[in-house]
Structures are given as C-alpha cells and as structure tokens.
C-alpha cells in the first residue's frame, strides 16, 4: 500500500520561543495559567482554614461572650452569622437580676427586624414595643435563669444590637451577617 505524500509540512501556529517545542498551544499563557492555578489553590486552602476557625461564622472564632462586671448577666452569641441560617443568642441571669420573681429585659429593634428573631424560650409573660426597642418580662424563680433567642438573619450586613436588663449596664455589640 502506497504511503500518502504530504506536500505541506505540519507547522504550528504558535512560534517557537527560546527554541522550545511548540505543540499547538500558547506555552507562555499555559505557564501563567499554572501559576494562577497555584495561587487560587493557596487562596482556597486559606479560605478553608479560616472557615474551620470560624472567621466566616459557625466556628470557634465566631462565638462571643459578654458579661456584666459582677457576672450577674451573661450573653453568649455568634458575632458572625450567616444569612438564613439558625443561630442562638443566650442570656443567662444570676439572682440579682431577678426582681419580684421576674426578669425585665429589653433589646434593640434590630433583634427582630435585622437578625430575624423567630422564637424566644421561655415565652415572655409580657412584651411591649417602645423607645426604639422591645421590652420583655419573663417569670423567674431561682438562678440560673436562661433565655434563648432563636435568630435567623434574613439578609447580610453589619448590625448593631443593644441588650440590657433593668438596673444593669446595657450591652452594645455588633453582629456581622455573611451572605
């Protein structure tokens, strides 16, 4: 069987650079891409490590704790939360915060409008709106008493939240909600 005769030499459209072989692709671009890939992988690994640490929420670094000087009122929350993801804000009280077998607590209105407070456990005996916030009254007998706010932020952003108990200094803190 006769061999076909190739009249035209096979040539590459990409010219040789530094006498290196050109195999139909832009080697220089490929090198840049490989370098770019390495940078992206490094960025991905950093992202995963930061995520594990809780920088983007739901990890050890995202948990925060506040307390009054005498430790009567303690607040535990997540300083970084995620949109649409449930989280909790816990307020714990000692004896001094309980007056007439009840606890009076007030919170900034961002608790409901921005941080999406869905539920309070236990249910407050009374709740009222006023002074740019919400006022709750909880029945309580002995310490330790704990109130849990279930949050589910509807949209991302940085929100200020104020929380206080009558006769005690108020807490002012920020919560970052990731997309």
């Amino acid at each position: 069987m006769a061999q076909p005769i190739y009249r035209k030499a096979v040539e590459d459209t990409v010219p040789k650079v530094n006498n290196e072989i050109a195999v139909g692709e832009d080697v220089e671009f490929q090198r840049k891409w490989w370098k770019f890939e390495k940078l992206v992988w490094a960025a991905f690994i950093c992202f995963v490590l930061l995520d594990l640490a809780g920088v983007f929420g739901r990890g050890p670094l995202s948990k925060a704790h506040l307390a009054t000087a005498d430790g009567t009122v303690n607040v535990s929350y997540e300083r970084v939360q995620r949109t649409g993801t449930p989280s909790t804000l816990k307020v714990e009280f000692r004896d001094r915060a309980i007056r007439n077998k009840q606890i009076r607590l007030w919170a900034g209105e961002d608790l409901v409008s921005k941080l999406g407070n869905k539920q309070i456990a236990p249910q407050p005996a009374t709740s009222a709106v006023g002074d740019g916030g919400l006022h709750y009254t909880f029945p309580a007998t002995t310490e330790p008493a704990e109130i849990v706010f279930s949050l589910q932020p509807p949209s991302p952003g940085l929100y200020d939240l104020s929380l206080g108990v009558d006769d005690f200094p108020a807490f002012h803190f920020k919560i970052l909600v990731m997309p």
Partner: peptide
C-alpha cells in the same frame, strides 16, 4: 445541612474541589 448560605455552599464546593485535587 440547615446552612443554605452562599458562604457555606462556596466552602463546600472548595473543600470538594480540594479533595478531588
């Protein structure tokens, strides 16, 4: 799980990509 945020989904895709690599 119950975390349907963009942050979580991006993290999951990156981890699966790294595992594949």
């Amino acid at each position: 799980g119950d975390d349907r945020s963009v942050t979580n989904c991006v993290g999951a895709v990156i981890v699966i990509g790294l595992m594949h690599g």
